[in-house]
C-alpha cells in the first residue's frame, strides 16, 4: 500500500498540496505521478498556449494506466476557486449545463496532473467564441496492419490536396497510432462549415488514394491495411487530444507536433508500425525536443486561414475531374 504523504509546492502565485507523488502510473516504465507533474511543468508554457480558454475534459487514471479510467467533463469536485471555468448549456444532455474547467496557467495544469489526469482533451474552440472552431481537423487513424509508410503517404496526399487549393496544414502525432492534420481557421466560421469542408477534402482524398484510405466508420468493415480518414471530429462539444498531452500507454507517449519533413521521412521508411515510431516522443524526450525545436504549432506556424477562396477553388478543381 502506497504511503499517502502530501507535499506542498508553490507554483506561480499558488500553493498546491500534492498527494501520492510516488504513485506508479506507468508500472512497466516506473513513471510516477511525480514524473507526470514534472513533465507537464517542463512544457507548461507550450502546452498552455493550446489549452488556454478551451473547455477541458480530464481523462483520469487514479490507479495508473492499467486501472480504471474516467472522463470528467464537469469540473472536478473541490476544484479550487482560482482555476478558471466556463459554464456551457448542453441541449439534450442529462444535465442542463456543464461547468468545464479551463487550464489557463501552470498552477491549474499542475492541479490537474495531480488528479492523475494523464490525458487532456480540449474543445476545438475557445471562450468566448465557443461556436467557432479554430481549425479544420483530419484525424488519420491507421488500421491494425497499416504501415508507417502508408500512413505518411495518405497524410502527405491530404497536405498536397490542401496546398492545391491554397491551404497550409499542420501535423502532430495523436500520441497513439495516428496523426492529426489541422488547418488553422480565421475567426467566424461555424462547426458546420468546418465539418462540410473537411468532408469534401476527405472524400476527394479517399477517391484519389483508393485502397490506401477509407471513410468507413465501422471499425470492423475497414480494411486493416488502410488509413481511416475521420473528418467528423469537429463539432460543438467534440474534443481533441491537446498538443503535448500525455497518453495512457506504455512508455508514456506524448501527442507531439511534427515537422512536415519528418512525415516525408516516414514515407521513405520500410515496414514499421506507426505506433512504434510515434512512441519515441515521450514524457522523457519531449522537454529536450521542445527546447530544441520550440512549439511547431506556435504562433509563427499557426497561420489563420480563410476558406472562401480555397472552397471556390476546390469546387472548380475537384468536381470537374472524375
Amino acid at each position: 500500500m502506497s504511503s499517502k504523504e502530501r507535499s506542498t509546492v508553490s507554483v506561480g502565485a499558488q500553493m498546491l498540496s500534492l498527494s501520492n507523488l510516488e504513485k506508479l502510473l506507468w508500472p512497466r516504465d516506473g513513471y510516477t505521478k511525480g514524473d507526470l507533474i514534472a513533465y507537464y511543468r517542463s512544457v507548461a508554457p507550450r502546452a498552455i498556449a493550446h489549452l488556454k480558454d478551451r473547455p477541458l475534459t480530464l481523462q483520469r487514471y487514479p490507479n495508473g494506466i492499467d486501472g480504471e479510467t474516467f472522463f470528467e467533463k464537469q469540473m472536478p469536485r473541490g476544484m479550487p476557486e482560482w482555476i478558471e471555468r466556463v459554464t456551457v448549456p448542453t441541449p439534450g444532455g442529462s444535465r442542463s449545463e456543464v461547468t468545464f474547467a479551463l487550464c489557463n496557467d501552470e498552477p491549474s495544469l499542475v492541479y490537474f496532473a495531480n488528479l492523475a489526469a494523464i490525458v487532456l482533451h480540449v474543445w476545438t474552440s475557445r471562450v468566448p467564441a465557443l461556436d467557432e472552431p479554430e481549425f479544420v481537423l483530419f484525424d488519420l487513424d491507421p488500421g491494425e496492419k497499416c504501415t508507417l509508410r502508408t500512413l505518411a503517404t495518405v497524410t502527405l496526399a491530404i497536405r498536397t490536396l490542401l496546398a492545391e487549393i491554397g491551404l497550409k496544414p499542420l501535423v502532430k502525432t495523436t500520441g497513439g497510432y495516428g496523426l492529426h492534420v489541422v488547418v488553422p481557421l480565421a475567426a467566424g466560421y461555424s462547426y458546420e462549415t468546418a465539418k462540410v469542408f473537411a468532408e469534401i477534402v476527405a472524400r476527394h482524398a479517399a477517391a484519389e488514394l483508393g485502397e490506401l484510405a477509407t471513410l468507413q466508420r465501422t471499425i470492423a468493415k475497414r480494411p486493416q491495411t488502410a488509413v481511416y480518414i475521420d473528418y467528423v471530429q469537429v463539432g460543438l462539444g467534440k474534443t481533441i487530444v491537446a498538443p503535448y498531452s500525455v497518453r495512457a500507454r506504455d512508455g508514456a507517449p506524448v501527442s507531439t507536433p511534427l515537422h512536415w519533413a519528418e512525415v516525408e521521412g516516414f514515407a521513405r521508411r520500410s515496414a514499421l508500425a506507426p505506433a512504434d515510431e510515434f512512441a519515441k516522443h515521450t514524457i522523457r524526450t519531449l522537454p529536450g525536443r521542445v527546447a530544441r525545436e520550440g512549439d511547431l504549432w506556435g504562433p509563427k506556424a499557426w497561420k489563420k486561414q480563410r476558406l472562401e477562396g480555397p472552397s471556390a477553388k476546390a469546387g472548380r478543381l475537384w468536381t470537374e475531374r472524375g
Binding site: 478558471e84 466556463v86 448549456p89 471562450v127 468566448p128 465557443l130 467566424g188 466560421y189 461555424s190 469546387g315
Partner: peptide
C-alpha cells in the same frame, strides 16, 4: 457538399456581420 459548403460559408458571413461584438452565450467565471 460543395453547395452545402457555399451555403454554410454564406451563413457564417451573415452571422459575423449580425453578431459583431455580441457576447457568446457561454458564461465565464473568473
Amino acid at each position: 457538399l460543395m453547395d452545402v459548403l457555399a451555403q454554410s460559408l454564406e451563413a457564417s458571413k451573415k452571422r459575423r456581420s449580425d453578431a459583431n461584438g455580441k457576447p457568446a452565450e457561454a458564461k465565464r467565471r473568473k
